[in-house]
Design a protein around this nucleic acid. Structure first.
Lengths: 113, 113
DNA sequence: CCCTCCTATGCTCATATCGGCATGCGTCAA
DNA sequence: TTGACGCATGCCGATATGAGCATAGGAGGG
């Protein structure tokens, strides 16, 4: 088995730096593929592929505008990520030195086997 | 080139479901590898490898406790992710139908070439 | 209709990844 | 010392990935 498919998983989709950059760029508004490619400093096919991944996980939408195909941000999919990391917020400043009760229980349980 | 190394990048580290699960489990407290492996329903080497990745990006710390090696959460590394996604918060409920000024400018610029 | 531009795909290559298995090393107990 | 246990690592295999390149398809202009 190899890595899980990048598609159909927002966490994986935003694991790619260029894809994150695309999302950031799109905050400033819709853009055609060629524009994005130029701003990313990559090729058009390269940009298209990343956009495809982002589209499949629902982070961007596209609409045709004449000859152009405009990609726009749909940030709703980022919300679960924000919330997931938010669950750890209270651990950010916590003391790391506290001894954990779980471990104590574990040891005790083992001795009872 | 293939995908960027998963190590040294928190976004990549948490792109793996099992690694996310490990972090969640560790919220309840430190645990030895074997325990984690059991709770994840995977093998000990499997757990060790994921823990290694998490350790390399600084999301977990380990300390020896006799025969055991206890892994603990260090959630500070998740903060950047939380903040990055937070930058999109105002787009979550935004109307997607607004026509973007950038595109207008773009078209105009092209006509001027 | 023909040409041009924009974009999506297909293909290949080099590589990173995850899982399974075996194994090596260190620690503790008897 | 010997044995049992906990854990990290190495190796292999199957596969997904990202980049580069060529190209097909679609739309608009002349």
């Amino acid at each position: 088995m190899a890595r899980a498919a990048t598609t159909s998983d927002v966490f994986n989709a935003i694991a790619e730096p260029q894809r994150r950059e695309i999302l950031v760029l799109l905050r400033a508004g819709e853009r055609p593929v060629t524009e994005l490619a130029r701003e990313l400093g990559t090729t058009q096919p390269g940009a298209s592929k990343h956009l495809r991944v982002l589209r499949e996980v629902g982070l961007v939408r596209d609409r045709k505008a004449g000859k152009l195909r405009l990609y726009g941000l749909d940030a709703r999919g980022l919300r679960p990520v924000h919330e997931w990391t938010g669950e750890f917020e209270r651990f950010w400043n916590e003391s790391f030195d506290r001894l954990d009760a779980y471990v104590q229980d574990l040891k005790q349980t083992r001795h009872e086997d």
